[in-house]
């Protein structure tokens, strides 16, 4: 209470740099300095270092994408995007992302229900296993599917007998993408649903609702923003996945090339403008994702009250 009070009253630090400077100026004639802040010179130096670091490693790379993409003007930019191979890559990326997001959405809801609404032994191990794909190198993620379904894979004989192609084809790309995006939806939902507990569901069921209508009328509305948040991040990663997809795709132009792979091919062929043009679409997606994420976080924080 008290701490909040003081923060609201505004210490030098939370008052804003200009006003913080002003304030410390006011202290100057007293000679004393507030307990919780640094001298103005230190403050300015740290701010400059932080901004320079962010600019150098994040800001400039982002600007570079758009600058390089538009270097030769709009015509070249648009031409690179409507070229058939680029369109095919965009189409494939959308298909892969759509399937992966839906798969992980359903899995996330199902897993979160089982984990958050019931008590059972081994729960934390299960959560760790669901998070596991986050810590696996994307290349290894691709490789394990090659080892299962590739020409020398564990299931190679069966797949050949049935004439099913997974690796170097759409199913492989989809599987690898689902793997790397596996935890996104579940990890947003599980903590939230655990925190919300089971009393609302128990109330609904005591009032005669069925399990499914309880889920759709009580649980789902309570987690909708977190769900959307998870889907958003899942989608961004699904569209942008490179390493895992690169291993399983076979890089067949116009057929098994997703947008990130198409970017690589163009880049290696020194078609920089075309490469950055496709990249700029993904960068835009990232920006949109971040803006939506900021809005959603705001919503989530509001509902958390």
């Amino acid at each position: 209470m008290n701490a909040l009070d003081h923060t609201a009253h505004g210490h030098g630090a939370s008052e804003g740099l200009p006003s913080a400077l002003e304030q410390s100026h006011a202290y100057a004639h007293h000679g004393g300095r507030p307990a919780r802040t640094e001298p103005p010179a230190v403050r300015i130096a740290l701010t400059v270092i932080a901004l320079a670091f962010i600019g150098l490693f994040i800001g400039l790379p982002l600007i570079t994408v758009f600058y390089e993409a538009l270097k030769r003007g709009w015509a070249a930019y648009v031409a690179a995007l409507i070229e058939p191979d680029a369109l095919a890559a965009i189409r494939l990326t959308l298909i892969v992302a759509a399937i992966s997001v839906v798969a992980n959405l359903i899995f996330g809801l199902v897993a979160a229900w089982a984990i958050a609404k019931f008590e059972f032994p081994g729960k934390s191990l299960l959560i760790t296993l669901i998070d596991l794909p986050f810590s696996v190198s994307p290349v290894v993620a691709g490789l394990i599917y090659v080892l299962l379904f590739g020409a020398q894979g564990l299931f190679a004989a069966y797949l050949q007998a049935w004439d099913i192609k997974i690796i170097f084809a759409l199913p492989g790309i989809v599987l690898a993408t689902i793997f790397v995006t596996f935890p996104f939806v579940a990890r947003e939902l599980i903590p939230l649903m655990q925190e919300q507990g089971t009393s609302e569901e128990e109330a609904a069921i005591s009032l005669g609702a069925s399990g499914l209508s309880t889920f759709f009328r009580v649980t789902l509305p309570n987690v909708k923003w977190a769900l959307l948040y998870g889907v958003l991040l899942c989608n961004a990663r699904a569209m942008g996945e490179f390493g895992a997809v690169s291993v399983v795709s076979g890089h067949v132009r116009g057929l098994t090339n997703t947008m990130p792979l198409h970017i690589e091919i163009l880049y290696n062929e020194y078609q920089f403008v075309a490469s950055f043009a496709v990249a700029s679409l993904l960068a835009l997606l990232a920006l949109v994702t971040l803006i939506a994420k900021t809005i959603l976080e705001h919503r989530l924080a509001e509902e958390d009250r």
Partner: peptide, 16 residues
Amino acid sequence: LSRSVRERNVGFVFQH
């Protein structure tokens, strides 16, 4: 007032 808290030699017991 010309001294900062650390130079005033005050024992402060905080609410929390």
